[in-house]
């Protein structure tokens, strides 16, 4: 194990596969886990970097463990918990449990046992061991902004493309792209996809007399990446949208939070 990047073969033959879990089911678990981390993270007002780091931990963790042996909800909660610490936005475990409770049904909470806090903390330990304390994770977000700054003008158009690419990055966290490619590569690919969908031709701002006009715009940032790689990443992304049933909640393991809530008698009127 020398790196946190895997080829498609390794991703297909994950520990869950040897445990008899279908690839489609695994993809769904990954998607739902990512989604769960986002929901909990948003509820706790965590920054997007923290949430994204938690999701990357989650994907890496389940390259070493099967979804059968480690409950994915607990795994996801532990990932978010650790990401909070790693990204210097630590949250109390108690508050995390509280946020998880608001999202999960009582039946789903059963997975967390009698002491959910203890369960998360012990999984954090397993997670640390699994990911070998490799806690510094980079995300495509900052590269999108960095590359966009070096693109030729029409700021309004570029802004639009960047916003779209940014949303692609958000959604890409539900896929295994972060296990396959470095964030820079994902960033150029999703910028490419966004530009294509906006029918806008990106071009890099000339950076001097030696500017090579024959190169594609992204090759000014990542010279060694060819269009096949970009194409593959875009396809994976489109494929993800295609497969994901967006009309219904694709989050069916988790019931939506209840709207009507009984107010317990003991709630004080004022906070002192």
């Amino acid at each position: 194990m020398s790196s946190w990047y895997f080829c498609s073969n390794e991703i297909v033959n994950s520990p869950s596969r040897s445990d008899g879990i279908e690839i489609t089911a695994e993809c769904r678990y990954r998607r739902e886990g990512a989604r769960f981390i986002m929901d909990v993270g948003n509820r706790m007002n965590l920054r997007y970097e923290t949430v994204a780091t938690g999701i990357v931990f989650y994907h890496r963790f389940y390259m070493m463990h099967s979804f059968k042996t480690i409950n994915r909800l607990i795994g996801a909660a532990a990932c978010l918990y650790l990401a909070g610490k790693a990204e210097e936005t630590p949250k109390k475990c108690r508050d995390l449990v509280k946020a998880v409770r608001t999202i999960l049904s009582e039946r789903q909470m059963e997975a967390f046992g009698d002491d959910p806090k203890e369960e998360i903390i012990s999984h954090e330990r397993l997670l640390l061991q699994t990911i070998k304390f490799d806690l510094c994770v980079q995300h495509p977000y900052k590269y999108i902004v960095k590359f966009a700054k070096n693109l030729k003008d029409d700021r309004a158009q570029i802004e639009k493309v960047v916003q779209m690419a940014w949303n692609f990055v958000n959604d890409s966290l539900s896929t295994t792209l972060c296990l396959q490619w470095k964030p820079q590569v994902v960033a150029v690919s999703l910028l490419h996809l966004a530009a294509k969908l906006s029918k806008y031709n990106l071009s890099a701002a000339p950076d001097g007399p030696h500017y090579d006009h024959s190169k594609s715009w992204w090759q000014h940032f990542l010279p060694e990446i060819n269009s096949d790689v970009l194409e593959d990443i875009c396809l994976q992304m489109l494929d993800f949208y295609d497969k994901t049933d967006v009309g219904a909640s694709n989050y069916n393991m988790i019931s939506p939070p209840k709207i009507t809530m009984k107010v317990p008698q003991s709630i004080p009127y004022r906070t002192l």
Binding site: S3, K132, F133, K182, E224, I225, S227, V229, E231
Partner: peptide, 22 residues
């Protein structure tokens, strides 16, 4: 769209970062 099948060689471009060596 180009041919996106022959990319396995290029996959994991400079994946040599982050070696958990400890």
């Amino acid at each position: 769209s180009g041919n996106s099948k022959q990319i396995s060689n290029q996959r994991r471009h400079s994946a040599a970062i982050e070696s958990p060596s400890i």
